[in-house]
Design a binder for these strands. Structure first.
Lengths: 374, 374
DNA sequence: TATGCTATCTTGAACGGTCAAGAAAGAGGA
DNA sequence: TCCTCTTTCTTGACCGTTCAAGATAGCATA
């Protein structure tokens, strides 16, 4: 804020100002900063000294980028509100991997403030689109975006390399994801093996409209987020093979990956006579909500209700070390995504494993039961 | 990756290419994108159509920034490894506030991959310095940096507006923080009021060298991080006033805000005859480590050991709703920091309150005791 | 002595936008 | 009818770098 060491207060010093002051050409000054081997050491020292004296802050990044075409940053586009992303443990784990890879590549990370629910009065179109257009980056990572997200189109229009993670595959675009369907299938098989016949599914959001509640078959079919769609497919495949009609299993959609929502959605269902004995939750957060709902309904876990989550998030708290869940390598996805961006030519698809981790929140069903609860 | 809709495969289309194709001047094309009111609607439509046809991705961000001097992004410089920052709940809370404010300001967020422990062989100096120099941003937020961090100097050299958060104050630089000293004082007073006389302090890192262990008086005096220093001062002021000699209270420094480190450091101390009956922890993470250590030592909390944390982080898990702690408004700090960046001229310092929240991890000391444990 | 080579520095031209100023044409008022 | 104002579009300069190519000198080689 203070301009103490700025000789010409009117304007910021440039390469040429430094050059003039040091009695050398502008290119020499440029080289002093960027290519030390191109000039003698004493001259370089002199140039850097006069630069400091003039308050020259180093080459203007915009000018450099314009000339070189490189920015030294990659952009990360989220589906969620950015603030929300920081509260989601899954996203955080992914971010951690991305950040780690960035450090290795000596590149900065530009978080793009995108919002799927566009403000209608916005002349520049949905929020994220302009942000993507203006992003000074060398490539993009698309994380968990909806199939129809305008941000996807916007990124694709930029013509920069990009990678899609945990979202619908795009033709010709490298992809990183996990075996969502397989992981979900194993979760359901596990509960079926324990004799469960009455299920409920706690689903992550299927569409961008922020709707909560029981998802109709139509809504399920039209899901624009691939991760919940795949997990749902996995659950259902296993259920069908196990002799349980998937169509009869309620899908409770939670617009946010939130314990409270899961709790609120599930609680009424637990009061019914035909209450489920097992919950398939698409995230650990939702699973913890189910546990809370069970407690509120006077049921024990896993005595009265078995719960299987997804993600194997945290590991710090007590709760998570109790949850049966499906483990996925969060940070690894981030690392791989950046690797694919940085070194194209490798495999264009990486599907990482999702393995079932059996802990204490699932158990054999107490009384034998038929699908209709008799 | 695919160049399907690029007419001239050799090079990316520019404003002028579009202008030529549409039969208008380059300025008109520029206006079509940036200033819709400067040209008639039908012409604008025509221009945008030909732009799309040529695969023109919109104005080059670097060129635009060069001319306008604005970047539409603010830089966030951390003290920690970026990946680590994503695992620290305090940092996450702050980031959430920053991200929220960014969305409001329609600005992107550039995370700067800085590392305090410089790689010695790095010609460009410590990691973060170059990253700061190259950052295409309109301002910086400095979060939790050490007094002597090269990143601070680097940011200051850029001559852009910046705000310091949770770190040593810089002359002339706006500051956002909390009442660390007061919060710490209240934590200690709370335990003193419960009759505790034998304390141990679990401290966040005091220096950038990654050292763990009992901090010597010299090390404490030379602390380069202001937050731990202030909290320590608060603890000690209260202890002294309560008749406990602060110099006799061990300060266990944890290089990382980590349950395990706190656990490992504290455990041996709990085995001694003169074991502390109360722990002052500078974060909830460290406090949870203390709880774990107590459990490992066969002690109960708060029966045998009282623990007071700091941060009031999460609120989700079971553990945190049990911890007596000092609450601070994490996200609010982020919001304020960006507000001060965006609208200079307001107050240059904001010190937010830190209030004691009494829960179940602290209690009256069981047996009366003197400071020497007899 | 002529020649080539290396090390060091300079020259001039991009990079791709935005902006200030100006030109042309049509509308409105005296 | 003439003048002014507004709308709409154009012209040319400039933002601050990096890069390719060239100039100069020093030195070794033939």
């Amino acid at each position: 804020m203070t301009d103490e060491n700025q000789d010409t207060l009117s304007k910021r010093a440039t390469l040429r100002d430094v050059a003039k002051a040091a009695g050398v050409s502008h290119t020499t000054v440029s080289n002093a900063f960027a290519r030390p081997d191109q000039l003698s050491a004493p001259l370089r020292e002199r140039v850097l000294t006069t630069a400091r004296a003039l308050g020259y802050a180093g080459p203007n990044p915009a000018a450099r980028s314009l000339r070189t075409g490189r920015h030294g940053a990659i952009g990360l586009a989220f589906s969620e509100d950015l603030p929300y992303a920081f509260s989601d443990p899954t996203a955080i784990g992914f971010l951690q991997g991305v950040a780690e890879a960035c450090r290795g590549l000596r590149t900065n990370l530009l978080l793009i403030a995108t919002r799927t629910l566009a403000a209608a009065d916005d002349p520049a179109g949905p929020d994220g689109v302009q942000a993507v257009r203006d992003a000074a980056v060398d490539g993009f990572v698309l994380y968990s975006l909806a199939r129809d997200s305008p941000v996807v189109a916007s990124v694709s229009a930029r013509g920069l390399p990009h990678v899609a993670v945990d979202q619908p595959r795009l033709p010709g675009v490298p992809y990183v994801g996990i075996d969502d369907e397989g992981g979900a299938r194993r979760a359901a098989e596990h509960l079926l093996a324990f004799g469960h016949r009455r299920f409920a599914i706690l689903s992550l959001k299927l569409g961008s409209d922020g709707r909560d509640g029981v998802a109709s078959p139509g809504r399920v079919a039209a899901a624009t987020y691939s991760v919940p769609a795949s997990r749902l497919a996995g659950y259902r495949a296993a259920l069908a093979r196990g002799g349980v009609d998937p169509a009869a299993v309620p899908v409770l959609e939670c617009a946010l990956n939130d314990e409270r929502r899961a709790h609120d959605q599930l609680l009424p269902l637990l009061g019914t006579k035909q209450r489920p004995t097992a919950i398939l939750a698409m995230s650990d957060r939702l699973a913890l909500g189910a546990v809370a709902a069970a407690r509120a309904a006077g049921l024990t876990v896993p005595g009265d209700l078995s719960v299987v989550g997804f993600d194997d998030v945290a590991g710090d708290g007590l709760e998570s070390s109790f949850l049966t869940t499906v483990r996925q390598p969060h940070a690894e996805k981030g690392r791989l995504a950046l690797q694919m961006l940085a070194a194209p030519g490798g495999p264009q698809q990486r599907v990482l494993p999702a393995e079932l981790v059996v802990r204490a929140s699932s158990a054999r069903v107490t009384a034998p039961q038929s699908a209709d609860g008799t």
